[in-house]
Amino acid sequence: MIEILAAVLTYVALAAAVWAAVLVVVGKPIQLREWHGLWLYGVVLLLEVGLLVQLVAGIVRLATADRQVDSLAYLGYLITALLIPPLAGFWALAERSRWGPAVMVVGCLTVPVLILRLGQVWDAHV
């Protein structure tokens, strides 16, 4: 179940990154009063909810694992991934130029990398 979630979260994060990149290209700052800003933050909110579910599912998975896993590293990636979207969201919102959505591109691209590392930590033999 958590593998499917990881794949879905990766696609949601990439979709948000692509949309943010479009805003960079057309030179729009993030405006929550406009549909394009609202949609971006809607997708990012969805991503954040998914990451929260992943955290809970990951903790359950760790607790019921039948072998040794580097659990501290696993938890570290789960929590770091959860922190990125809100931090990027607040930081990007204060910028009144296209560099605001550029922050969202970087933030949203970081999440799939962390999810990838999460899978590697789980698969690694300790």
Partner: peptide, 8 residues
């Protein structure tokens, strides 16, 4: 501007 992204 670019500093916003750099700091991020």
């Amino acid at each position: 501007g670019p500093g916003r992204l750099l700091i991020a």
